[in-house]
């Protein structure tokens, strides 16, 4: 299973990559939405995208909308992460096509549980 983690914080990318790798995932990284689109173009398959909302160049919400417009990625699971944990924002992310939304700060266990649920729940 292949995943792409998108965050402008190198530390967050590392935390998310390690969490996914401990679950057996193969992980690539991107630092913003533009990089993520380029990374996806290079990937033959991607099952999961974890994207931060607030990023320079292209934010996570724009990335989600972009991914959902492409039929190639219609079935990829997208989990948005953000410290903007108001109900309206969560709904906005879901409406844009995110499958789930994890509020910052979160624990590694919480993220792993949500990934597990997205694929086995």
């Amino acid at each position: 299973m292949k995943a792409l983690v998108v965050d402008d914080s190198r530390m967050m990318r590392t935390v998310e990559q390690k969490a996914l790798e401990s679950m057996g995932w193969t992980v690539k990284q991107a630092a913003n939405g533009i990089e993520a689109i380029a990374a996806l173009a290079d990937m033959e398959a991607c099952d999961l995208v974890i994207a931060d909302w607030q990023m320079p160049e292209m934010d996570g919400l724009a990335l989600v909308k972009h991914i959902r417009k492409d039929v190639k990625w219609s079935s990829v699971t997208i989990i948005m992460v953000s410290s903007n944990a108001v109900m309206e924002s969560i709904q906005e992310a879901l409406d844009a096509g995110a499958n789930d939304f994890v509020m910052k700060p979160f624990s590694v266990d919480a993220l792993k549980d949500r990934v597990t649920e997205a694929f086995n729940g």
Partner: peptide, 20 residues
């Protein structure tokens, strides 16, 4: 808390079953 709902409550469920 955010920590507690993050652990296990997906966003669709949070929207459906919780209020601020």
């Amino acid at each position: 808390s955010v920590f507690e709902v993050n652990r296990g409550v997906s966003a669709p469920r949070l929207m459906r079953h919780f209020e601020r």
